[in-house]
Structure formats: C-alpha cells, structure tokens
Design a binder for these strands. Structure first.
Length: 825
RNA sequence: GCCGAGGUGGCGAAACUGGCAGACGCACUAGCCUUAGGAGCUAGCGGAGCAAUCCAUGGAGGUUCGAGUCCUCUCCUCGGCACCA
C-alpha cells in the first residue's frame, strides 16, 4: 500500500473531472427528474483571493449538492463572479490597468482556487456580472422596472464621499464616514435614478413568514422595513389655509401635546415665511442644521431647535393652541417630517422640552408604580388622565376612541409608515452597468401635457426619458482613457461626447444618454436567474418553463452580512418580475443558511491589519483539500462563529489516513461485526447532512472508522459504505479508494446507501437504574422486559439494594427498555 | 435603549420528543514501539475523595419520579439596529 499522498490524488481527480468539462456535475436542462437548486452567494473576486470563510459556505453547499445527486436529484449548483465594484476600479486606477483586466486576473485566480477545493460546480453555467452578455439582462430587468414605473429620477439629498468622488448608498456609510476610505461623508442634492422598493414594503415584510430563513435575518429585514401602524393627525394652522400633518403611533397621548415640531427641511417652513416674526433666526438655524454632517447629526448631543414665532396650531383634540418649533431631531425622511410633541410621554420630546422650558403635561398614568414626571418621560401605555371624555380608559381603547372621533371631524386618518426608503440607484463611477436610458428634449416637450401610462397603468414620472430598445442591449460600457471619477458629480462616461450624444429611439431626434452607472448590487439582484438562463456558455432569453422547473432556489448559503442589502434587493426585483409574470414564484430563495464567521486563531475577526488571516492555499498544500473541507465542517455547528484552531486540523488528517489504511484489511467475506454500526451510521450521516449538522455527521463517521480499525478484517460491504458516506465530504480520497477497490464508475455517481431500520436496533438494551431520580447502576437487558420483570432483577443489584434497604418503595417509573426509577422513602 | 443568537471540561464541542451530562476531535499524562519523532499503538483524562460517595451545564428560584433541556427572575458574551415620533 502506498502512503496517502493528498497532493497526487487531488491533482489526479481534479484533472479527471475537468477532462470532459466537469460534465459529471452538470445540471440537466429540460429534465423530468426531481430537482434541487443549491446556491452559493457568489464572491466578489478581490485581489486577495479566497479566504477560509468562503470555503466554509462553499464546502457546505458542495456537500449538500453531492449528497443530493447521490440521492437521485437533478442538481443545479453553479458559481459566478460579482465583479463590478469600487476596489477593482481603485486598483485599476492606481496601477493604470483596465478594470476588466484586473477582473479577469482575479477571476482566474478564484476559479483555480475553487477547483483546487474539488467543488462540484456546473462550470458550463459560470456567470460574470461584468460580461456584456450578462449585464445585457441586468439592463433588461432595469428597463422592466422602468417601464412599470418603479424607476424614477429625482433630486434627493445623498451621501457623497469627497475622496471616492461618488454617491454612497446608505449601507456604505458607517458612522458618518465612507466605509472604504473613512473620509467624512457630506450631503449633496443630486439628481439620481431611484428604485421604488417602498412600493413592495408590505409584501417584502409579510412574505418573510413563509421563508425557511434564520430568524435573525428575518428580524433584521423586518426592522429595516420598519412598519408602524398609527394615525395621521391634522393640526390646523391659525390664520392659514393648510394644516400641519403629523404621524403618530400614540394617538392616546394627543391631549398631552404642548408643541409641534417640523424637520429643518420641511417645505412648510418656507411657505410660512411671511407669517414668521423671527425669520432671520429660523433661517440661521435651518441652514446650520441642514449642513451638519451625517456624523454630527448622529452624535447624541443636546437637542436644539428654534420656535416659529407668530405661528400657532390648534390641537384638534382639545382645541388648545400650541406653538410650532423647528428642530433637527425630527427627520424629514420619515413619516410626514413633522411630529406632535408630548414631552411627558416621549423621551426625545422630554429632553427638548426641558432644554427650552416648554410645558410638560401628563395624560397617561402608569398602573403599577410611581413615576416622577419631572425626571423622565413615561413612554409605556397606561391609564388616561387629563384627556376629557377619555379619562379613565386604557391607552388601547383611548387610541381607538380618539382616532375615530377625529376621523369623523376630518382631523385624522389611519396610517402606516415604513422606515424603508427608496433605493438610490445611480453611481458616478466607471466600473458598473450603464443605465440604459436616453433623454430626449424634443420628446419631453411634445408629451409635456399628455399623461402617459406605464405598463402597470400608473403615471409616467419622467416623460423625457426613453428606454434603450431591447435590440440595442447590451448598452456596453465604452472604453475610456481615464476612468478616474470626475469629482463633479458626473460619471467618467459623461466625458465621452461621442457616446453620450445619440439619437432618440422614439423620435430620432438629438438626445443624450444617462451617464451614471448602476450600483454594486444590481448584478447580484438577479444572478440566480442567470444561472438558469445560461446553458452551454450562452444566455438564453428568460424562459418560463426553465424558471418553473428550477425556481425557487432550494438552499441558499452565504454570509449574514447581506441580510438587509443583497437579500432585500433581490427579493424586490424578484417580486417585480413575478408581477410581470416572468418568474413563477413569489420569492427567489426558499431556504437560507448563514455560515458562522471563522475567527482568527486569536478569536478575533480575521483581518489583514491584524495579521491573523489564514491562507487556505497553504493549508491545502500541507494537508490537502479533503482535510481542509472536513476540518472546516468539523470545527463546530455550521451557523456558529468559531475560531480557527491551528492544531486541531491534524485530527481530521489522521482520520483520513485511517480511512486510507483500512483498504488493506478489506475482504469479500470479511467480518460482519460492524454491520449494525454500519446501518446506524448510514442513518445518522443521512439525517445530519440533510439538516446541515456536518460536525456530528463527521463524528459518527469517526466512530464507525474507529470500530472498523479495531477489526482484523473489514468486509468490502462495510468499507464501501464508509466510502459512499464520506464521498460528499472528501471527494478526492473517496474517488481514489473507490477506484482502487476495482470500481469503474465514479463514486460520485453512485446511489446513496440505504439503511435497514430492522438492523439498527440492538438486541440488548441498556437499562438505566435510578433511585429517587439518581442514576445508581445500569445493565444490559433483553428487549421487551416488563416492568415487574425489570424491577425483580434490579432490586437485587447490590448498588440498588443498598439504597432502598430500610425504605418503602412508593412508586416505580418505568420507560420500556430504557430506564427504571425507584422512588423510595 | 430596542431586537436577535448564545453561555456545558484546559480548548472546539455532543446530548433526537425531559431519561447514564461531556460522544467525536484537539491538547495533556503514563506506557509500548522506534536510531529518531511534531509518526504509530495502548490506557487515562470535569472537580473533590483511598474508597463508598458527593459536587458540577453562567447565577437564584420553581415544575417533575427525573431538568443542560420546561417556567419565572437575574447576570454576562456576541451580532444587528439605533433621534423612525
């Protein structure tokens, strides 16, 4: 027998699998077989290469894929590259190479690394978001959104990074600074394309209930969407025609309103200019407030504001006049940008009222304890006081009563508000998908006074914009000399007049292209559909039959960091496509699992600056891909985060060497001592892989191998079963051993072994004997013994007798074949 | 502050519907084998005790014949959100 040479074996089989273009892992199109779509979150091909965290998730999905194939499923298990993005572009600028070149180099490295791990991807469906044939469809879907009225252009305040020279998405701003370069982010008002994700807020929320996702991720999405039920309440302005409209979730506190607050950006402020007596003071405050950076606004400083002197509104509940203030603790982006302040029952209002010595009026009393209204706000529900006819009611009843009374009078209506904002979709950078829209002045002029309808029957919001015709897609990224950002809020594409100037697809007149590109998240919002559309290295048009067969994704595996970004965006696009009858399911990803974070050996998150990053290539070289795969699965529960323990990996290596060594003991008619354990192991491993409990599946295999190793001879049957059970976990060594056993067919195309339930049960069972609930002894006993029979045997045991002598047996609890508990006094 | 997930040996962890707590692996200890070992094999390995036995699943109560598992309170760790009215 040769030594277990992982390097030689792994190279041999990787070459073997690649020989026919990885045909063994290919998903069959148009098949009648039952299917499984097992998807990894595709990586951003960075210059650093794959890290051990990627490998953890990819190994798990590979195991599930191989397991599913052996169980007769037609498996779609693809891989691709989410390759647009800033790091590549920044690298390209710094080193003066085209971002496409950088991408190609990184992709080649990633692909080679994945293939060295022996992952069973269907490489004939590989996708790359930066491939024009790919982003043709990204653009196509964008246009579907556009045509249905879910894309609109508007001037909005955005986060601008002065160093990266682009708009940042909210998710790219951490504590008011750019996530990438840590420059302080400033606010700018820019015209941007925006996607109306808020139109789907309610469905994005309610459809979560049917998904098999980690509760934590669902909860994050719920919080992000942030649905609140409440009421819109109108506070009429004295001597003015408009009311101030506020949103509140606590209409029961309405009688306690002592002032009303507007956000500094509120339009009403400007409209009230002529009535305000301290206008200069107001302008001074609002301009300072508007210019405060994100960071300054987030710092919990003193609450500041300014009164709109001369302006008074009427509380519709008690007809009292209350003043109006402007303060930046009220956000324009949520609700109506105006709130009714109830300092007695809201912490923020309380702090503000204390600061400006505004009155505080108690209208809710806690039921069970004393509360000092001069020290803090009472924000819970309670019993109504000082609220006219509602006194004495509970908060819940009062809310209904107050709102319904005000509704009759036209001062209130029920309302639902969301925290979710629309998705700012423009970026001023080069390395992204061009937005396929053309602006035509002539068309805009012509149709100015007509109302155009979208595909959905809504009103067209930006009538001058015309979609690039489908036949002209992809709208390719033009080559530019300088892809550095311009810094003047335009993308580098704006500088290429030849590209920008075009003709209007509608009227043929002169027109200009949109020059912004799409954000990083565009390509990943639909890539799971791209794999279905991609067959034999080309993209087919969206096809209802294929979508119906493969969707939804049965198992989606990746990191938790995408909880509210990619996973929300993809669900949004999917729902638009569902409504457009392009995809047949309401949701893209039926089941989701997050791999836990792999921490450095020091127990801290791996990072280059800390120097605690484990390089998988070095591990593969020293121990082999099979060992690395199994080690990562054995470290702990898949979804838990766990530190990398450098030393423990040898345990897995020893295990594989033991498996390797067993081959010399095999015989056709070898011992059958292990057969019961074999059936038990099949059961355990089958169940554990099915529930992604890889660590316990491996420990069951270790128990089995240890038992086989103790035998003089090992039967071919028990050894072959071992190899089959191990095949999804360690594909190379099992392929080699399978072949050495004289099998011609690949082990990975074999059927998963079955167990015989009758062969699992032991003839004898172990009966645990307790006295007063404490275990005193245990004994092997024939199955099926009666309570009386067991008791008779057990009371004779020395260690039992000593505990029950001089005592009266009050009760006996007997669990058939398992446990007997004697209760004695 | 709010939401979510967790606290079990020296370490990573097991324990299916309440039923022998610590499977499996690492590290460690002793022995065998070896010219050698960062190899292999055998045995041991939660704490106290010569032992019988007692104590142990963050802490305090409770339910139960029996609790790591169920209930109440409490402490701590990690992750997310955070002026959202």
């Amino acid at each position: 027998m040769q030594k277990y040479n992982h390097e030689k074996i792994e190279k041999k089989w990787q070459k073997e699998w690649a020989r026919d273009g990885f045909a063994e892992w290919r998903a069959e199109g148009g098949s009648k077989k039952k299917k499984k779509y097992i998807l990894d979150m595709f990586p951003y091909p960075s210059g650093d290469g794959l890290h051990v965290g990627h490998i953890e998730g990819y190994t798990a999905s590979d195991i599930v894929s191989r397991f599913s194939r052996m169980n007769g499923y037609n498996v779609l298990h693809p891989m691709g590259w989410d390759a647009f993005g800033l790091p590549t572009e920044n690298y390209a600028i710094k080193h003066k190479v085209h971002p496409a070149k950088v991408t190609e180099k990184n992709v080649n490295n990633f692909r080679a690394q994945l293939q060295r791990m022996g992952f069973s991807y269907d490489w004939s469906r590989e996708v790359n978001t930066t491939d024009p044939e790919y982003y043709k469809w990204t653009q196509w879907i964008f246009l579907e959104l556009f045509k249905r009225g879910f894309a609109y252009e508007a001037e909005v305040p955005v986060n601008w990074c002065p160093s990266c020279k682009t708009v940042l998405a909210n998710e790219e701003v951490i504590d008011g600074a750019c996530d990438r370069c840590h420059s302080e982010v400033v606010h700018k008002n820019l015209k941007q394309w925006i996607l109306k994700i808020t139109a789907y807020a309610d469905r994005l929320l309610s459809d979560l209930d049917d998904l098999d996702w980690p509760e934590r991720i669902k909860e994050m999405q719920r919080n992000w969407i942030g649905k609140s039920h409440g009421a819109l309440i109108k506070f009429p302005l004295v001597d003015y025609k408009f009311p101030v409209e506020v949103f509140t979730t606590r209409p029961d506190t309405l009688f306690g309103v002592t002032y009303v607050v507007l956000a500094p950006e509120h339009k009403l402020i400007e409209e009230l200019k002529d009535y305000v007596t301290n206008w200069d003071e107001v302008v001074e405050y609002t301009s300072v407030a508007k210019n405060r950076s994100e960071r300054e606004r987030q710092e919990k400083k003193e609450k500041t504001g300014v009164e709109l002197k001369g302006i008074v509104v009427i509380n519709p509940a008690n007809k009292k006049e209350v003043p109006v203030w402007v303060a930046d603790y009220v956000l324009m982006g949520y609700g109506t940008g105006a709130v009714m302040a109830v300092p007695a029952h809201d912490e923020r209002d309380f702090a503000f009222a204390k600061n400006y010595r505004l009155p505080i009026e108690t209208v809710i009393q806690p039921i069970s304890y004393n509360w000092d209204a001069t020290v803090a706000a009472y924000t819970e529900e309670g019993k109504m006081v000082n609220s006219g006819e509602f006194d004495g009611l509970g908060s819940g009843e009062a809310m209904e009563g107050i709102v319904s009374k005000l509704k009759e009078q036209g001062f209130a209506e029920d309302a639902v508000k969301y925290k979710l904002r629309d998705w700012v979709f423009s970026r001023q950078r080069y390395w992204g998908e061009p937005i396929p829209l053309i602006f035509c002045v002539a068309c805009a002029e012509k149709i100015k006074n007509k109302t155009l309808k979208t595909k959905n029957g809504g009103e067209v919001l930006n009538p001058g914009w015309v979609a690039v015709p489908e036949d002209d897609l992809p709208l390719a990224l033009p080559n530019v000399k300088h892809y550095e950002p311009t810094g003047n809020a335009e993308s580098p594409l704006a500088g290429i007049t030849k590209w920008v100037n075009t003709t209007c697809p509608r009227c043929g007149g002169e027109a200009r292209r949109e020059t912004n590109t799409m954000p990083q998240w565009a390509g990943s919002s639909w890539y799971y559909l791209a794999y279905i559309m991609r067959e034999n290295n080309t993209y087919q048009a969206p096809n209802a039959r294929d979508f119906k067969y493969w969707l939804p994704v049965d198992m989606y595996i990746g990191g938790a960091e995408h909880a509210v970004l990619h996973l929300l965006y993809a669900r949004f696009w999917h729902k638009v496509l569902y409504d457009a009858k392009i995809v047949p399911t309401k949701e893209p990803f039926y089941a989701l699992r997050n791999q836990g974070l792999i921490l450095g050996p020091d127990g801290v998150k791996m990072s280059k600056s800390r120097g605690n990053v484990i390089n998988p290539d070095a591990v593969v070289k020293e121990y082999g891909a099979d060992t690395l795969r199994m080690f990562e699965m054995f470290m702990g529960p898949f979804e838990d985060s766990k530190p990398w323990d450098v030393r423990s990996i040898v345990g897995i290596r020893r295990f594989l060497e033991r498996v390797w060594g067993l081959q010399v003991k095999t015989q056709d008619d070898g011992s059958d001592d292990a057969e019961r354990l074999m059936h038990q192991t099949i059961k355990k491993v089958t169940e554990d892989i099915g529930t992604m409990h890889f660590n316990t599946a491996i420990s069951a295999l270790m128990v089995y191998v240890n038992a086989l190793a103790e035998q003089e001879v090992v039967s071919n049957k028990t050894y072959k079963t071992l190899l089959l059970l191990l095949a999804p976990l360690a594909p190379h060594i099992t392929a080699e051993l399978w072949q050495l056993m004289g099998n011609e067919k690949s082990i990975h195309s074999e059927a998963w072994p079955n167990y015989d339930p009758k062969r699992i049960v032991e003839e004898h069972s172990t009966l645990v004997v307790q006295v007063n609930g404490k275990t005193r002894d245990s004994l092997k006993i024939a199955r099926g013994i009666s309570e009386e029979g067991a008791l008779a045997v057990v009371t004779k045991l020395e260690r039992i007798a000593s505990h029950i002598q001089d005592k009266e047996i009050v009760r006996v609890v007997y669990v058939q074949d398992k446990l007997i508990n004697i209760v004695a006094k």
